[in-house]
């Protein structure tokens, strides 16, 4: 047996390892290019009161959770009670970005399911969403005291993710 004859087998085994690794990944998860960059600027009216403004300036000086949601998004409904509970149990600043929604629907939604947000920015055009690289609602960002994005969660936040990733990170960032 020549060693050369083993080459195809070797190449195939590498391929199998690669494909096996692929099974553990979601090919649609894109890491955010905004990690460790300044939060993109925006200045939008608030959902509940159009005269109030929500902007990236609100995030400065404290660790902020910024959650992108919409009333039309079914995964947001699964996520929402967890956020409400999280807001109650921990004194964390949570802002919302209401993405491509109707104001009346959004207000009704908050009325029914509870409002964990200090305020939600009303992004009816989706332009702020584009600037934040939002592509699948819900998404959740964690921003440090200096207004730098430190973490992004794509898809609904779960209790496990809060316990394993979000809370430890917030604790760490608060000490910085």
């Amino acid at each position: 047996m020549k060693l050369r004859a083993l080459l195809p087998l070797l190449a195939f085994l590498i391929l199998v390892v690669l494909l096996g690794y692929g099974l553990t990944r979601n090919p649609k998860d894109i890491p955010s290019p905004l990690i460790n960059k300044a939060a993109p600027a925006f200045d939008l009216p608030a959902v509940l009161n159009p005269d109030d403004k929500v902007s990236d300036k609100n995030f400065l000086g404290k660790v902020t959770v910024f959650n992108v949601w919409a009333s039309w998004c079914s995964a947001c409904r699964d996520e929402h009670p967890i956020l409400v509970k999280f807001a109650k149990e921990h004194k964390t600043t949570i802002y919302g970005l209401n993405y491509k929604d109707q104001r009346a629907d959004a207000i009704r939604w908050l009325g029914i399911f509870g409002n964990p947000y200090i305020a939600s920015a009303y992004d009816v055009t989706g332009n702020t969403g584009i600037d934040w690289g939002v592509y699948g609602v819900p998404e959740t960002f964690i921003i440090d005291k200096k207004g730098i994005i430190r973490y992004k969660q794509i898809g609904p936040v779960t209790d496990k993710i809060i316990a394993d990733k979000i809370l430890p990170l917030i604790r760490k960032l608060e000490k910085e």
């Binding site: 047996m1 020549k2 004859a5 083993l6 087998l9 195939f12």
Partner: peptide, 14 residues
């Protein structure tokens, strides 16, 4: 299937 046949190939192709 593929691994097995490539192994067989390695043994016999020489």
């Amino acid at each position: 299937v593929i691994g097995g046949s490539l192994l067989l190939y390695a043994f016999k192709a020489g």
